[in-house]
Simulated assay, not measured.
Amino acid sequence: MTSIAYSPGLHKLVTLQVDDTCKLTDSKAFVDFTRNLLDQFGLEQVGIVVHDFDNRSFTIAVCLKESHICVHTWPEFGQLTLDVYLCNYLQDNSKKVKAVMAAYIDFFGATVLKDFEIDR
């Protein structure tokens, strides 16, 4: 029996340090930026959940036809965690995952504290 090599996709997870903590409390700016990224990279949103906490931090999960983007912010520590996962169902999206993550790092003006890549 011959096995066909298949990678379901790349999952990139980062922890970022952000000096401009206003970006860690502005969920609307994150959502607007994300919508622009989705258009830029031809990704399709199928759902979104936004939760703003009392301290103005936020958690957002964007469900994509291709998988998901999730963020959790901690303005009191100047940090956030972010993960981007795109499936490879019709094409290899690994470069797209890396480009989307790089765009978010630029958006936040962030320093990368932890960076993990998981080939699913």
Rank of each mutant, 00 (worst) to 15 (best):
L16I: 01
L13H: 10
T21A: 01
S3G: 04
L16W: 01
F108N: 01
L37E: 14
D115C: 08
K96I: 11
H68Q: 11
Y6N: 10
L113S: 13
Q79V: 09
F58S: 14
G42V: 03
T2I: 00
F30P: 09
D83P: 03
T59M: 15
K95T: 04
P75C: 07
L37I: 14
D106H: 08
V18A: 03
L86E: 06
F33R: 12
P75W: 07
K23E: 00
N55L: 03
L10R: 11
Q91S: 14
T73N: 02
I69G: 08
I4H: 01
C22W: 00
L90M: 14
G109F: 04
T59P: 03
D83G: 10
D26I: 05
V100K: 10
A99R: 09
V50W: 02
D119C: 01
R120L: 13
I105V: 11
S67W: 03
L37Y: 04
Q17I: 05
L82T: 06
G42L: 12
H72L: 14
I60M: 12
A29Q: 05
G109S: 11
F107C: 05
C87I: 08
S67F: 08
E117Q: 07
P75A: 09
L43I: 09
L64S: 15
L43Q: 14
D54E: 12
V62K: 07
I118E: 07
Q40G: 09
N55G: 02
L10Y: 00
N36C: 15
H68P: 10
I105H: 05
L80Y: 05
D115L: 05
F58C: 10
S27E: 04
Q79P: 00
L10M: 03
H11Y: 03
D19Q: 10
A99Q: 13
A61V: 15
L38G: 14
F77S: 09
D26E: 08
H11D: 09
D39G: 14
Y89I: 15
K65Q: 09
D92H: 12
Y89S: 15
Y6V: 13
D19I: 02
T21Y: 00
A110L: 09
C63Y: 07
V84I: 13
T15P: 02
Q91R: 15
V50K: 13
C70S: 12
V100H: 05
N88P: 11
T15H: 01
L38E: 13
L113W: 00
T2D: 00
A99G: 10
A29S: 07
L13A: 11
V97E: 08
K95E: 06
L80R: 06
Q45R: 15
A110G: 07
E117H: 00
V18C: 02
V71A: 06
G109Y: 01
P75Q: 09
V31E: 11
I118G: 03
S57E: 11
Q17P: 00
W74G: 01
T73C: 04
T34I: 09
K12M: 06
S67T: 12
N36H: 14
F30I: 15
V71T: 15
K114E: 07
L80Q: 00
V49Y: 10
